[in-house]
Design a protein around this nucleic acid. Structure first.
Lengths: 325, 325
DNA sequence: TTGAAAGCGCTAACAC
DNA sequence: GTGTTAGCGCTTTCAA
């Protein structure tokens, strides 16, 4: 294995000189630089960041602890973040919690062992152990995709409660009155639960309380949405609109309607959440709310690499009228 | 910052004893263990893996250099791999190449600086620089989702050429004769190019050469599939079947047919690739080939953690008849 | 502009 | 069963 010492020897200079040249920091002559770079090339030297990190300060590692990779939402956040991180010589390290707080705690502990510059997490709901460790570690903490709660340090996202409320307003304004909900495992996905709470509250306040709801046991999926809508309609055929916990679920509902010849939105209106691209090109574009997923990752990464002061960044969201409601 | 030395002092034992207890390696008395663990708890000590890695051998870091996160395929591979890696106390580190070989080379260099146990890459096509670095690094290399080419060390996946050929056979057996192709940027996605090659060859050999093809400029997407199929049909309205570069594209094509009232499969048959879940719950299930994405990640991770000898693992694929062809 | 040397926090021999 | 010590490969003073 080629080390910095070997490069120094090959170039006939001291180790610290090689280090300075490689990091382009401190002073060295043009001639020295050429000699060093030539040796680096010739030996195929790759700096060892493990050693570098230990010797200096920051690891330039950013830990991303996300609930799921199946859900495109988090893949989008990762994508946004990793782009910015790479541009700034940082490295993303990630792990997946499957929406389990205990697993999150274990994973945060494992990540902290790498002394990351920052840890990014989904939302504000974490175990006491997780919060304690994070605080003790002294590294930056970024909580993503939620604004309804108290941030530990940095937070980037939008209000899920508000999104649910806006969805309700929209359906009401369109004249729908007998409104149902199709969701997935809310104990785990607390952000979906917050949307549902905002939705329900707004409906109630308008005097048209939620008629019925059906929860798909397990993670959100297109199939889950299709099956759950079918069950809901069997029980409550008179509904005129359904709000889904997200676009995956809504798409499943839409497929169910297409398959059964249920006229959308005349017989039944459908409303999703997230504004996924696929919802733009279905025969009828999905009525939904576009969330700033990639931007959330990007902004979070920017805050981290610039070492910004603690703050909460509201990226908002955007109603997409679509044609299904 | 709490270090192992401080824990040792607090527990009134030597550093190596703490290290032994924490790694549960070597011998120590029950009493000592309790004293150490108590101190660890009390001080909230989190081991520093940076230092640990430098002092010992392996980093237990696995670098995953993937083309895209938008494409669910790679998210699935990541998911499969990260599960196994976590179970075995390894950490996944990833970066995204956007299908650009130069970017891949830069990212591999960056990853190598972390002295990973293994580097996982998509497919066999890499720049000379990438191959050279990888070879020089001495770490394990796993090439994923491709079998049509020469492996550097480990390879896990299936034959894309064979998948294309099987798709062609299926369409021919169903009696389709005027067959077209809708794909995306083939220069970059070499695996899609291999499928297309296998498809085309098999059609030609059967005496029914490909009638026409339409390439969507850019990455694969549902929208791309929809637009490209529209263009293809405008130019060549007599086609009776279309093979798509993957399910995303095929789904777009299916949506186009639904929107235009084109009878599927009577007027036009559609065939995809990947066997995504969403294709199982569309009004008509998509005819496609299911690929072992999660399994690919899982097997790759297992080979790495067990330090298996160089080998090529063919996980195969499975034809799904569906109802669109 | 450059080199020598002291760590960074841990692991692994080796001695006791 | 336990402590001492010499590194791992860098970065960073501090002199020269």
């Amino acid at each position: 294995m080629v080390t910095l010492a070997k490069v120094a020897e090959a170039a006939g200079v001291g180790e610290s000189t090689v280090s300075r040249v490689l990091r382009n920091h401190g002073s060295f002559s043009r001639k020295t630089k050429d000699r060093v770079m030539e040796a680096v090339e010739r030996l195929g030297y790759v700096p060892n960041r493990i050693a570098g990190t230990l010797a200096s300060a920051g690891s330039r590692l950013v830990a991303m602890v996300i609930p799921s990779l199946t859900n495109i939402v988090f893949a989008d956040v990762l994508r946004g973040a990793s782009g910015i991180l790479e541009e700034n010589q940082h490295q993303a390290v990630f792990s997946v919690t499957e929406y389990e707080p205990e697993k999150e705690e274990a994973l945060v502990a494992a990540m902290l062992a790498w002394r990351p510059t920052a840890v990014m997490l989904a939302g504000f709901e974490h175990s006491n152990g997780t919060v304690k460790m994070l605080r003790a570690s002294g590294c930056r903490v970024v909580e993503l995709l939620d604004l309804d709660g108290a941030a530990q340090d940095l937070a980037v996202g939008f209000s899920n409660r508000a999104a649910g409320s806006v969805a309700a307003d929209f359906l009401l304004k369109r004249g729908y009155r007998k409104i149902g909900y199709v969701g997935h495992d809310l104990d785990r996905d607390t952000r979906a639960a917050k949307r549902f709470a905002g939705f329900r509250e707004t409906l109630g306040a308008a005097g048209f309380p939620l008629v019925d709801s059906e929860i798909h046991a397990g993670a959100s999926s297109v199939e889950g949405g299709r099956l759950a809508l079918e069950r809901l309609l069997t029980r409550m055929p008179g509904l005129d609109a359904v709000y889904f916990s997200n676009d995956d679920m809504a798409l499943g509902g839409y497929f169910h309607c297409l398959a059964r010849g249920i006229q959308v939105p005349e017989r039944l209106a459908l409303f999703g959440h997230n504004g996924l691209d696929i919802g733009r090109v279905t025969p009828q574009p999905l009525s939904t709310i576009r969330t700033p997923r990639v931007a959330t990752g990007r902004v979070a990464a920017e805050l981290v690499v610039t070492d910004a002061p603690s703050q909460v960044v509201d990226l908002g969201f955007e109603l997409i009228e679509g044609a299904t409601a």
